[in-house]
Write a protein that binds this DNA or RNA. Structure first.
Lengths: 165, 165
DNA sequence: TCCATATGATATGAGAACCATAGCAGAGAG
DNA sequence: CTCTCTGCTATGGTTCTCATATCATATGGA
C-alpha cells in the first residue's frame, strides 16, 4: 500500500504551512515597522502615540477628537493632550466650523506641508521598497497592492472587534 | 503624428503607479496593525511600548537589556522599567548565567506559555488572514510570504540606519 | 416650551512612565 | 595595577495618561 499522501493532501498541507508563514511574517513586519516608526518619530520629536495619531489624521482626513479617540482606542482626555502637542508642533490645526450642525465639535486637520519631513525620513525604506518592487511583474505588483489593502482592512476590522469587547 | 507613448513607457508608468500604491498601502497597513496592537495590548494590560518589546523578545529569542534597548531605540533606564513591568506581569524572566563570559549580563527570556493569550486576541485577525489566503494559489502565497519577509528586513535596515544618524 | 439626560472638548490632579544622571559591579586595555 | 568603559539598575524631575469634573451644546420626551 502506498503510504504517501495524495497530491491534493500534500498541497493543502503546503498551503496551510504557507498561511502560517504569511501570518508570522506579518507579525514580524508589524514589529519592524513599529520600530521604524519609533525612529522616525524620534527624529521629528514625536512620541509613538503622537506619530500614530498624526498618521490616522493624515490618512483619514480631518476628523473630530472624539472620532480620533474611538479610532485609536484612547481616552478623550488623552487625545486632548496629544492634539495639544501636535498643534504646538505645527503638525495639525484645530478648527471650529460656525456653520456646523454641532457647534461643540472641533475638526482636526493635518498640515500637509509638514508631511515632506515625514516622507524624507522614510526615504531609506521607500528606496528599498522601490528596489524590491523592481523584481516583480506588473501583475504581481497588483496582487501585492491588493493583498496589503485587504490585510489593512482585516486589521481595522479586528481592532474594531476588540474595541467592542 | 501619434502622440501615444510606447507600450514600454506606459508599462513603466503603470509600474511606478503600482509602486506608489504599494508603499501607501504599507503605511496604511502599518497604521492599522499599530492600532490593532494597541487594542490587543489593552486587553492584556500591556502598554504599547511593553507590547512592542515583548514582541521583539518573543521573535528574536532571549536577549540582554542593552541589546533590547538598542534594537527598540530606547534608553537603557527605560528598558529597565519596561522589563520590570513585563516580569511583574509574568511575561518574561530575567536570568543571569553564572558561566557567561560577562557576569554583569542579564538575559531576558519570554515565557512561551503566556503567548497563547496573545494569540487568542489575534484570532479575529488570523481568521481573516486565513480567508484572505484561501483566495491565492500556492505560488502566490509563496510570493506574498517572500515579499513580507523582504519588506520586514527593509524596515529593520531603515530603522537601523535612522538609529545611526 | 421646558426639563432631564447625553455628548464634545477640555481642565485638573493623582498616579505612572520616561530618561538624564549617578552608582555599583564587572570588563578591557595599556 | 590603574584607568576607562560598559551593563544594569536606582533616583528624581519632568512629562504623560486618564478618571473625574466642568462648561457648552445637543437631543428626546413630556
Amino acid at each position: 500500500m502506498n503510504s504517501k499522501s495524495s497530491p491534493g493532501a500534500a498541497s493543502a498541507r503546503q498551503r496551510r504551512r504557507l498561511g502560517v508563514e504569511i501570518k508570522d511574517s506579518l507579525r514580524e513586519l508589524s514589529n519592524q515597522l513599529s520600530l521604524l516608526n519609533h525612529q522616525v518619530g524620534g527624529h521629528l520629536g514625536l512620541k509613538d502615540v503622537d506619530f500614530d495619531c498624526l498618521d490616522v489624521i493624515v490618512r483619514h482626513g480631518p476628523l473630530t477628537p472624539s472620532a480620533l479617540a474611538r479610532h485609536a482606542g484612547l481616552h478623550p482626555a488623552t487625545v486632548t493632550g496629544i492634539l495639544d502637542r501636535l498643534q504646538r508642533g505645527g503638525w495639525v490645526v484645530r478648527e471650529r466650523d460656525p456653520e456646523a450642525a454641532d457647534r461643540r465639535a472641533v475638526t482636526v486637520r493635518a498640515l500637509p506641508e509638514r508631511q515632506s519631513e515625514v516622507y524624507g525620513l522614510f526615504r531609506g525604506m521607500n528606496s528599498a521598497m522601490d528596489e524590491l518592487c523592481d523584481g516583480y511583474s506588473e501583475d504581481e505588483l497588483r496582487l501585492l497592492a491588493r493583498f496589503l489593502k485587504d490585510t489593512a482592512q482585516a486589521g481595522r476590522t479586528a481592532a474594531d472587534a476588540l474595541a467592542g469587547e
